[in-house]
Amino acid sequence: MTAPALQTTRRCPYAPPDEHTRIRDSDSGISQVTLPSGQVAWAMGRLEHIRAMLTDPRFSSDRRHPNFPRFTREQPAFDLMRPSLIQLDPPDHGPARKAVVGEFTVRRMAGLRPRIQQIVGEHIDALLAGPRPTDLVQALSLPVPSLVICEQLGVPYGDHEFFQRNSSALLSRTTTPEGRRQAVTNLRDYLRELIAAKTADPADDLLGRQLAQGSDPEDVLSLAFLLLIAGHETTANMISLGVVTLLERPGELAALREDPARTLPAIEELLRVYTIAEFANSRVAIEDVEIGGVTIRAGDPVLALSNAANHDPSAFDEAEEIKLDRGARNHVAFGFGIHQCLGQNLARMELQIVFDTLFRRIPTLRLATPADALPYKNDAFVYGIHELPVTWEDPA
């Protein structure tokens, strides 16, 4: 019997497809599906199972493995570079992560806060001085995290249109195989030239510090590629989705505006309900493993239905409801285990600063297009909104 095709279109902007919910709520919580590539994979929908998988060394994160879950038929374009952190298994992963983890500590993030606040303030100044309605994605959601990660890495922000265009092509499900490989090639060549310049003339930025401590330039290239894409696409999409959610809940937004201590729990809930990189926790078994009464054989691909897991009623009370005061951090929006997202502290801080500043400075901000008519990214590997028209009234 052929496994049913995987559904990828959400029931609503934050709820997983009905099929994902059915798999999660089945007796085992695990079922086989056929991916768009034609590959048959185990789909895992319960939070406890996914967290168990992500801490079990019998599951590999190596995207080069021929059986790693794939949505496209072509060989992954990432093979044009050395494996990055998200592709490494122990024992290679530990030293590679240790070399860079100090760049993302809570203390170092706190040191970035004044500059991020300045960046957000300047973009809101420009927003207020511009036309109405305007696209918040282009005015705020995308440029803020792009500028932050560029400054952190030491990438010239003047080149942001180049890397945003190529990263968007890479993350779109509609990009052709040739287009995807060309996007990777473009970004790789750009970063290789940048790293060569930093090798010749060291700078006090993340990439410069990696080179100064003796990291191989090709390894720094792979790290830069990962951080540059992950550091702006994900946070940009969460800013846009979060703004829509809060504007659609004026009572809760007013409470958040009056008490900024509510912002971080609200961010945690937004991360949970949207789970924008919903398949990022997928793996391939390298030994036979039994989970939920299902035997997964060595070589079997395993697709993590992370959005379904983050709506798991056995883990979250009234899981389908958006409760901005929930504050639960046991979700897997940032992954879990050794591959948990390096930049999660930075992402939380950027979201906090943007939401607090935006709604304080523009209290009359409102959607210029109904939320259900917005162009959501059902065609992308990272969920979000293509455009977010907003407007506001001048203060009386």
Results as ranks from 00 to 15, higher is better:
residue 179 G to R: 03
residue 219 D to F: 06
residue 341 C to S: 09
residue 98 K to H: 15
residue 293 G to A: 07
residue 136 L to W: 01
residue 304 A to R: 11
residue 91 P to C: 02
residue 373 A to I: 04
residue 311 H to E: 01
residue 379 D to K: 06
residue 388 L to G: 09
residue 286 I to P: 06
residue 301 P to W: 12
residue 266 A to R: 08
residue 240 S to R: 02
residue 393 E to G: 07
residue 195 I to M: 02
residue 371 A to P: 11
residue 205 D to H: 14
residue 56 D to A: 10
residue 290 E to T: 15
residue 319 A to L: 07
residue 70 R to M: 06
residue 42 W to H: 12
residue 151 E to K: 01
residue 336 F to K: 03
residue 181 R to P: 04
residue 231 G to W: 11
residue 110 A to K: 11
residue 105 T to A: 03
residue 230 A to H: 13
residue 233 E to R: 13
residue 296 I to S: 05
residue 34 T to S: 15
residue 58 R to Q: 07
residue 164 Q to W: 05
residue 203 A to H: 11
residue 118 Q to S: 07
residue 30 I to T: 08
residue 358 L to N: 03
residue 319 A to R: 04
residue 307 N to C: 14
residue 369 T to V: 15
residue 151 E to P: 07
residue 130 G to K: 03
residue 184 V to I: 11
residue 244 V to N: 08
residue 23 I to H: 10
residue 141 S to Y: 01
residue 220 V to Y: 04
residue 67 N to I: 01
residue 222 S to E: 03
residue 126 A to H: 08
residue 23 I to M: 07
residue 241 L to M: 00
residue 19 E to D: 13
residue 234 T to R: 04
residue 4 P to S: 10
residue 1 M to C: 14
residue 383 Y to N: 04
residue 188 R to Y: 08
residue 387 E to M: 01
residue 124 I to W: 01
residue 215 S to Q: 10
residue 315 A to T: 15
residue 187 L to R: 02
residue 39 Q to E: 05
residue 194 L to R: 03
residue 113 R to W: 00
residue 252 E to A: 09
residue 318 E to A: 13
residue 370 P to A: 08
residue 204 D to E: 15
residue 265 P to Y: 00
residue 192 R to N: 08
residue 63 R to E: 13
residue 60 S to H: 13
residue 244 V to C: 02
residue 351 L to W: 01
residue 366 R to H: 11
residue 352 Q to I: 03
residue 291 I to D: 08
residue 303 L to D: 05
residue 335 G to R: 06
residue 213 Q to K: 14
residue 350 E to R: 05
residue 219 D to L: 11
residue 6 L to N: 10
residue 112 L to F: 11
residue 348 R to W: 02
residue 2 T to N: 10
residue 230 A to Y: 06
residue 258 E to Q: 10
residue 384 G to A: 04
residue 211 L to D: 00
residue 22 R to W: 08
residue 239 I to Y: 00
residue 385 I to L: 14
residue 375 P to H: 02
residue 278 E to A: 11
residue 94 G to Y: 05
residue 362 I to F: 13
residue 385 I to Y: 06
residue 331 H to P: 09
residue 192 R to I: 05
residue 69 P to I: 13
residue 183 A to F: 09
residue 278 E to G: 02
residue 349 M to K: 01
residue 63 R to Y: 15
residue 378 N to F: 07
residue 179 G to D: 06
residue 339 H to F: 06
residue 49 H to R: 13
residue 133 P to V: 09
residue 84 S to Y: 08
residue 391 T to W: 05
residue 335 G to D: 10
residue 42 W to M: 04
residue 374 L to V: 11
residue 301 P to R: 13
residue 57 P to T: 04
residue 98 K to S: 13
residue 342 L to Q: 08
residue 337 G to L: 00
residue 191 L to V: 11
residue 176 T to V: 02
residue 363 P to K: 06
residue 122 E to A: 11
residue 128 L to G: 07
residue 359 F to K: 12
residue 250 P to H: 01
residue 16 P to Q: 05
residue 59 F to E: 00
